[in-house]
């Protein structure tokens, strides 16, 4: 104020310039302006310094304990089975399959007979069945909880002509005591492709592509002969064990084999095609089925299938 205010020394100096001659005025004026700028800059700097100090002071006083927890956000999660089913379906949808679903309570006819498993067939022992208490007036039909998602194969083909390319996720049921690897209630994803010109080679290609999408592009797959009454030839697909890298020895996950079975498959049995009225000379196809719980167990290292439907939040919140 003493220098720059209206009555300040410098202001007065500048005002008094008028009383000097031109040469003196120019010199004195320049000097005075120079002095004024210097002072103004110093003042601005000082003001900034003071402001910074004030902010620093208040910031210090307003400091938060950043280690305190933030506002809790409660997120929800999908059940791991739902997640895996979605992943599986996405992989097949990308290959032209569409997702359909079928009834969980079924007739014997769809669950067995149309799948080349007639009454009294020894292969029925492969599926221990939960039967529904139902008295058919005609004494013909038995009702049951479907033991696999395969009945939808017959239902889809009954309702349409080829080409067929569907994927069927859903619940299935078995009359089976539970332990770490067995549940009486679990899920399956079934697949079916039928047309003129679909081959075993296509089956291999499609399932290989699925394995790569689901388990990574470096995954190796192995196809071996297996038996399911509704396919011929029958296939079991394994992937190389990701726990031991396919070495096998001493590995609990793959039981020393280096391979993990993940899917049953095969070329649709001609009797199944004929059963729904398809021309077996013209049409061929393949079918496959896999268990999402098993895949989740492998992917996430879950050691007991009974965790899935016990609905313990300590389990569910991990996925």
């Amino acid at each position: 104020m003493a220098y720059l205010g209206r009555r300040g020394h410098l202001t007065l100096v500048l005002r008094n310039l008028a009383q000097l001659d031109m040469e003196q005025r120019r010199t004195a004026g320049a000097q005075a302006n120079q002095a004024k700028r210097t002072l103004e800059e110093a003042l601005a700097r000082r003001t900034q310094e003071l402001e910074d100090a004030r902010l620093a002071m208040s910031a210090t006083q307003e400091r938060l304990d950043v280690t305190l927890p933030g506002y809790p956000v409660t997120g929800g999660r999908l059940h791991p089975t739902t997640r895996i089913i979605r992943e599986v379906c996405e992989a097949f949808v990308a290959m032209g399959f569409s997702v359909v679903e079928g009834p969980e309570v079924e007739w014997d006819r769809y669950n067995f007979e149309l799948l080349n498993i007639p009454k009294g067939h020894p292969a029925r022992d492969m599926w221990n069945t939960l039967w529904v208490d139902y008295q058919d007036p005609a004494g013909q039909q038995s009702m049951l909880l479907r033991t696999h998602t395969s009945p939808m194969q017959a239902r889809v083909m009954e309702s349409q002509q080829p080409p067929v390319r569907v994927i069927v996720p859903g619940k299935v049921y078995r009359y089976e005591a539970t332990d770490a690897t067995h549940e009486w209630h679990f899920h399956q994803v079934e697949g079916l492709a039928v047309d003129d010109g679909i081959t075993f080679a296509d089956l291999k290609g499609t399932l290989y592509e699925f394995a790569r999408r689901m388990f990574g592009s470096e995954r190796k797959v192995r196809f071996r002969c297996d038996y399911f009454p509704f396919v011929e030839p029958g296939v079991d697909m394994s992937i190389d064990c990701f726990a031991c890298g396919g070495k096998g020895s001493g590995c609990r996950i793959c039981r020393d084999s280096g391979w993990i079975e993940i899917m049953g498959a095969g070329m649709v049995h001609p009797k199944v095609l004929a059963g729904v009225g398809y021309d077996t000379a013209k049409y061929t196809g393949f079918a496959f089925g896999l268990g999402p719980e098993r895949i989740a167990m492998l992917k996430y290292g879950i050691d007991d299938i009974r965790h899935f439907y016990a609905n313990d939040l300590r389990f569910l919140r991990q996925f």
Partner: peptide, 14 residues
């Protein structure tokens, strides 16, 4: 089964 080729589906997508 290894002797069978591996191909992708080439029939029309329904």
């Amino acid at each position: 089964y290894d002797t069978v080729p591996t191909t992708m589906l080439s029939t029309p997508i329904p």
